[in-house]
Design a protein around this nucleic acid. Sequence first.
DNA 1: CACATGTGCGCAACCGATTGTTCATCGCCG
DNA 2: CGGCGATGAACAATCGGTTGCGCACATGTG
Lengths: 335, 335
Amino acid sequence: MASLQEVADAAGVSRSVASRALSGDARARISAATRERVQRAAELLDYVPNHRAQALRFARSGAVGLIVPDVNNAVFAELLGGVQDRAREVSMSVLLSQIDPPPTGREQLRELVGAGRVDGILLQRREDFDDRKLGAVLTKAVPAVLINSKLEDRVGSVVLDDAAGVSLATRHLIDLGHTRIGHLAGFAAHDTAVRRHQGFCAAMESAGLPVRRAWVQRSGWEARGGADAVHRLMKARTKPTALVVSSVNAGIGALSALSRLGVRVPEDLSVVAINDTWVAETWTPPLTTVRMPLRTLGRRACSMLFDHLEGAPLTDVVITTPAPELIVRGSTRPL
Amino acid sequence: MASLQEVADAAGVSRSVASRALSGDARARISAATRERVQRAAELLDYVPNHRAQALRFARSGAVGLIVPDVNNAVFAELLGGVQDRAREVSMSVLLSQIDPPPTGREQLRELVGAGRVDGILLQRREDFDDRKLGAVLTKAVPAVLINSKLEDRVGSVVLDDAAGVSLATRHLIDLGHTRIGHLAGFAAHDTAVRRHQGFCAAMESAGLPVRRAWVQRSGWEARGGADAVHRLMKARTKPTALVVSSVNAGIGALSALSRLGVRVPEDLSVVAINDTWVAETWTPPLTTVRMPLRTLGRRACSMLFDHLEGAPLTDVVITTPAPELIVRGSTRPL
DNA sequence: CACATGTGCGCAACCGATTGTTCATCGCCG
DNA sequence: CGGCGATGAACAATCGGTTGCGCACATGTG
């Protein structure tokens, strides 16, 4: 609550001297006695530098905006953890926000960044934000890093090695002897989903297995979508013996639907999903998953943004270490 | 990016006139022509008032700190939704933060509030923050509203009607004919858990049913705790026919453990839990729950903090409307 | 015509911290 | 003893916006 002026008064010096004494600037010529006196006064008065004043002076708000579509999402907590960790290391705060589709969204970003509430943003795109909408919201003036998403004509992204994760899952099934493998993919308009499907196809192809169109279903990323996709899938004349699901929540939805359809997992059908949560572990049967380095994703995105604010150029990064990790549980078994 | 000065220059007036013209102050004596000119210049230059400067001037950061123990928690997403909604209505931002136990935690709050990063905080206490720790962290100087928690010697809290929610759940079981009912409670040191257990006892008592000590187990709030509690409970000589679980995640954990123990739900045991999530709906069997007004909780807490910042006194509020809502699914059935 | 009133606008202080520059003083050396 | 450099501290501008006050001029009134 005490201002620098009050500390200065208490120490009997000017504001500037107080500032230099406390900042510990080596080039500042302050006598040891004065420095001591100022520091004691600051201590006594419980002085904390006013962040608002510093923000104005340095034209830096000291905060990043984290824009996420859905806090409920399984991946969010871990992602946020990484972001928070990194932000804390450099004394930045994380401002949580949501944005609407354009044109409102652009205004919101302008308010956020233009007004200086935040210095830059980390943006995890919404499912219904296609490339065009996203591009329309992100003007070049906004320092932004896209999380697990990428735009053609915009640099600045950190994405998981989605293909590797899905390939790992798919190979796991192949190693178990499965050949008739289906894929519950995300949204066609979403690059993450595209990359994941490519990983699936690559693994199948390198094992010499065909990708059957009827066994590839758009499921979205949530439980409901996974359940719906399973219902469609199970109408096919010939059925797969194993299933790769691009998202853990959809995977849970799939398990739930399968159970209600009377399809036994893993006896009749093996299921593996991408991303790991406590629900996967708790389900009956426990869901085999591929754990993706979400925390690292958050850290790296945050780091890139900070570095960019310090002048470094934005880049496009794929997180390859730590590598996706297969966690075998009860939902997969040899054919 | 353009400053007020630049707008003023473009319009050929002084900063003060530009400020008044744009703020729309009725008492300001500005000619219509000048006002028009300034507004057009602002439009043209894409002027957005610098939030940092305003923050300094008004000694208001325009942000609230939302401090939550665990973003992963089922209740968090909805709570946050309510907070965000309210904050957006008054153009405030929500800064997400975590705090450590004292003494570190107190320093963090000082930095957050004392330095003016946020104007006040909303605090959902961590399980391991007992009253003493919480009190040690919250100095009187910090405008804070406790969410779903309450301290004896500190005013400023918004809590759910926990007792009513648990009573509703308990009565549901009683109405189904159950008389041997157990309770998986939260943490003894947590006032929310205490209120919920009181709700359980009240419902039992008013139906003339005994509360058996062996059927009351501390489960915590997460799946693991619920599962462990079930294992302890099922060692009892006589077993209950129904179970009230104080938290939905613990409820899911309980269902999972019961399934592995071979106890059929709802044939052998009915289960109902507090709070509703998609996992409850998706589980097999779908979990009967009591939906609590978490969004309202967030809104009200946020509102109270804002009002307090405007000068209103803090109070202690219990949210009674909307009332807890029983959502009957497949985990409960008549005895 | 003189004076009171009103109108439109600019000056300058302020919020709190940082920092380039200036100023006064002291000691040292020639 | 005069001049010089080093030292320690204060002055003042700055970040961008807000606002009390005063100034100049136009209009209205007696």
